[in-house]
């Protein structure tokens, strides 16, 4: 076990865990932020997507020891009042079905729009390829990303 100091959604947290513990479980079990979801545990589904210094990362495959002082953002901290353009677009398009994958989808899309504010269909497909939606909401996700992109530009 070891002590780690983390900055999550702008707040400081201290946890005492084994260094190889993935950030996913640090967030869910220790910090009690459960918006970040467990889907596969092997970096294949994107349900666990968070941001490290603003860039999307798969928290299930990211040991806490590798995070160092990078700033962590989770779905709970993406915006203060649920008003990130992607969150609003998700509501506008009524995207979720079961909803389980959607935090990961939104976090991944937010990182995409950070680096590419006006992505084409093909760029959205490529960037979102790692985020599975078992309910099949892909068509709406793409539409919502475009709505958010338009709003942000």
């Amino acid at each position: 076990m070891a002590i780690f100091n983390l900055t999550i959604n702008g707040e400081k947290h201290q946890v005492d865990v084994a260094p190889e513990t993935p950030m996913l479980w640090v967030l869910r079990d220790h910090v009690k932020l459960v918006g970040t979801k467990f889907g596969c545990g092997i970096g294949q589904c994107g349900a666990c997507t968070i941001h490290l210094d603003g860039v999307a990362a798969r928290s299930c495959s990211m040991p806490i020891s590798g995070v160092a002082d990078q700033k962590i953002t989770t779905i709970e901290g993406l915006s203060k009042k649920a008003d990130h353009p992607l969150q609003e677009a998700w509501i506008e398009h009524d995207v979720p079905q079961c909803g389980y994958c959607q935090a990961g989808q939104i976090m991944n899309a937010a990182s995409l729009l950070e680096s590419n504010p006006n992505p084409t269909d093909a760029e959205i497909d490529a960037a979102m390829n790692g985020n599975i939606c078992r309910c099949g909401t892909y068509v709406r996700i793409k539409a919502a990303i475009k709505t958010a992109a338009a709003k942000m530009s």
Binding site: V34, L78, A82, Q87, W90, I91, P96, G99, Q102, A103
Partner: peptide, 10 residues
């Protein structure tokens, strides 16, 4: 979806 706001904020 009545749970939409909760889903998009985790």
């Amino acid at each position: 979806n009545v749970d939409g706001p909760k889903i998009v904020t985790g």
